[in-house]
């Protein structure tokens, strides 16, 4: 009976859950402590990256004089070296151009395909939808050797187009799958009304479906941009000259010299290279989480 008396009203039961059944000390041990450890472990590499990036070289290797977990004399020397004495700004520009181009290309193809599969419902659309999903499961690790042969024969080797044209192979299936879910959530009646009023399919797509699926387009765009920004194996294989490299490849192959590791500028390069996706993602984190879960639920 006591249990029922203390029960919260049904309205608040949704997020309050049954936590009232647990005592505070018990919650500290079973929830807050493990969660704190998770957060510390997951964030520590970022903290360490940042600290190293602003450490002077002398402090980097002398752990006896001061605690390595903190910086005594922060310096911008590593970042200055990175930005003015290496090709890093060029790599940032390359990565931005390639990621934006691949994202736009993939979004256009994905919107059209998702609309056709989900709403035009041509015969065999189910099978095509499944095939597009299976295409996402083909990993770059088994495609990079034949693709490098193709890229070379097409004369695209060592050009940005090699990456702009190959990134959509994993972006299009992903975006199509995500957008199919979004289009499904738009009531079909809206389209029927427009069709009865004499709109063409193209008008239905551009004037009704697309404006309603802006959140889906944003998340698909962010996903595609992040995936292209983070891509490594194609960029490593298809690009040779230093000035055409992307950030992940450039940092790893050009900043690491066999004799001396410039840990400070390496960490600065890793940090600055991560910032664009982190900033982008922090603006749209709610879209990101909900759409990722939405896409997986399919």
């Amino acid at each position: 009976m006591a249990l029922i008396d203390r029960k919260p009203s049904p309205a608040s039961g949704d997020d309050g859950g049954m936590t009232y059944l647990q005592s505070m000390p018990r919650r500290v041990v079973t929830v807050y402590l493990p969660l704190a450890i998770f957060v510390i472990v997951l964030l520590f590499p970022f903290y360490w990256m940042t600290i190293t990036a602003i450490k002077p070289n002398a402090e980097m290797t002398s752990y006896d004089t001061s605690s390595p977990f903190w910086v005594v004399h922060p310096t911008l020397q590593n970042i200055r070296y990175l930005l003015f004495e290496t090709s890093y700004p060029g790599w940032l520009l390359n990565t931005t151009i390639i990621s934006v181009a691949a994202t736009v290309l993939s979004l256009i193809a994905a919107v059209l395909a998702a609309y056709a599969i989900e709403r035009l419902r041509f015969s065999g659309s189910r099978q095509v939808g499944l095939a597009v999903f299976l295409a996402y499961l083909v990993p770059p690790s088994i495609l990079f050797i034949p693709l490098s042969v193709m890229v070379f024969n097409l004369g695209l080797y060592d050009t940005p187009f090699a990456l702009i044209l190959t990134y959509p192979t994993f972006l299009v299936p992903f975006c199509t799958w995500l957008l199919m879910g979004y289009f499904r959530s738009i009531p079909f009646e809206l389209e029927e009304c427009a069709l009865i009023d004499g709109a063409s399919r193209w008008q239905v797509l551009t004037k009704i479906v697309l404006p309603l699926s802006v959140p889906g387009l944003i998340s698909a765009g962010i996903f595609a941009f992040t995936l292209s920004w983070n891509e490594f194996i194609y960029a490593l294989t298809f690009i040779q000259s230093s000035e055409n490299k992307t950030v992940p490849v450039g940092v790893l192959t050009e900043l690491v010299r066999s004799d001396v590791y410039e840990w400070g500028s390496l960490m600065a390069g890793a940090l600055i290279g991560s910032l664009p996706v982190v900033i982008l993602y922090s603006f749209f984190v709610e879209h990101y989480v909900s759409s990722m879960t939405g896409a997986v639920k399919e």
């Binding site: 998770f38 957060v39 997951l42 964030l43 590499p45 970022f46 360490w48 990256m49 190293t52 992040t226 920004w229 983070n230 490594f232 950030v247 992940p248 490849v249 940092v251 790893l252 840990w263 390496l266 960490m267 390069g269 890793a270 940090l271 290279g273 991560s274 996706v277 982190v278 993602y281 922090s282 984190v285 990101y288 989480v289």
Partner: peptide, 21 residues
């Protein structure tokens, strides 16, 4: 939730360089 997703968002190569150090 936002903080926990960070390792997944940043480029693997760049976080791997942090692990290297």
């Amino acid at each position: 939730r936002a903080v926990v997703l960070l390792p997944w968002v940043v480029p693997t190569v760049l976080s791997a360089i942090a692990f290297w150090w």
